[in-house]
C-alpha cells in the first residue's frame, strides 16, 4: 500500500448527500476480476452526460481530495468503490459522514477519509468550489486552506498504518501471533461448539458430490 503523509491539491466538490457505492461503482462492473485500472468505471452513469462530471473537469481532474456530503459510500460493501476512486488519484475524501464499510475500506487502500461538520465543512466546501489549494497533513492531523487550519480525528492504529503503508495481515501475524494461538486454544476450551471440525463438512461434501 502506498504511504500517505501529506497531500496538496485542489479539492473536487461533489456536493450531494448519500452517494452510495452503486453510484460510485455500478454493480455490473463487479464482474471484473481485477482491482487495478477501475477508475474508468467510477461514477459511470454520471459521466458522459450533458453536464461534465466534476472529476473530468480541470482543475478537478487532477484532484487528490474529494469533498462531499453526508453518508458518502453508503450501501454495498464493494471495495471496488475505493479502488476506483484511488485509481482516479483520490487519496483523501472529506465528508460529513460515511458509509461504515466504505470508511473501513479506505484505510486498506491508502485513502484517508475525514469527517467534518458545521463551519469547518462549510469552509472546505467553499475552498473546493473556488478551486483553492488544500493541504492535508496526516502526521499533525491538520487540514490547511488559506489561513485556516482545521484539525481532524483519526484512530491511532489507522494513522500508523496509513503513514507506514502497512500491510495489515503482516502486522497481525507478526504482532499478534501468540495472542491468536492462545485465543484459539481458549476458544476450544470455553466455547467448543464454535469450533468447526473438518469432519462436520463430510455430510455436506458427499451430498454435493452426489449432486
Amino acid at each position: 500500500m502506498e504511504k500517505l503523509t501529506k497531500l496538496r491539491s485542489v479539492a473536487a466538490p461533489l456536493m450531494e448527500d448519500a452517494i452510495d457505492t452503486d453510484v460510485i461503482f455500478p454493480a455490473r462492473f463487479l464482474l471484473l476480476l481485477e482491482r487495478d485500472g477501475l477508475g474508468r468505471y467510477a461514477f459511470n452513469e454520471r459521466r458522459g452526460g450533458n453536464e461534465p462530471f466534476v472529476l473530468d473537469q480541470p482543475p478537478y481532474d487532477k484532484a487528490q481530495i474529494l469533498v462531499t456530503g453526508e453518508t458518502f459510500g453508503t450501501g454495498s460493501s464493494r471495495e471496488q468503490a475505493v479502488w476506483a476512486l484511488a485509481d482516479l488519484g483520490i487519496r483523501c475524501v472529506i465528508a460529513r459522514s460515511f458509509g461504515e464499510i466504505f470508511h473501513a475500506n479506505c484505510f486498506k487502500n491508502g485513502v484517508l477519509p475525514i469527517r467534518l461538520q458545521g463551519e469547518e465543512m462549510a469552509r472546505m466546501e467553499k475552498a473546493a468550489r473556488a478551486g483553492e489549494e488544500v493541504e492535508v497533513d496526516l502526521p499533525s492531523q491538520t487540514i490547511r486552506v488559506g489561513d485556516t487550519a482545521i484539525a481532524f480525528e483519526i484512530e491511532a492504529n489507522r494513522k500508523r498504518a496509513l503513514m507506514a503503508g502497512l500491510d495489515e495481515i503482516g502486522a497481525i501475524l507478526s504482532d499478534d501471533a501468540e495472542a491468536l494461538a492462545a485465543y484459539e486454544e481458549r476458544r476450544a476450551r470455553e466455547t467448543p461448539w464454535l469450533v468447526l471440525a473438518p469432519e462436520q463438512f463430510g455430510q455436506i461434501k458427499s451430498e454435493e458430490d452426489a449432486a
Binding site: 464493494r78 464499510i101 473501513a104 475500506n105 495489515e168 497481525i172 501475524l173 491468536l180 485465543y183
Partner: peptide, 20 residues
C-alpha cells in the same frame, strides 16, 4: 457484519480483524 475485500484477505490469513 459486512467487510471489504481487503478484510476478507485478512480473515483468510489471520482469522481475525482489527476493529473498533
Amino acid at each position: 457484519f459486512g467487510i471489504g475485500a481487503s478484510e476478507c484477505a485478512t480473515v483468510f490469513a489471520a482469522q481475525s480483524l482489527r476493529q473498533r
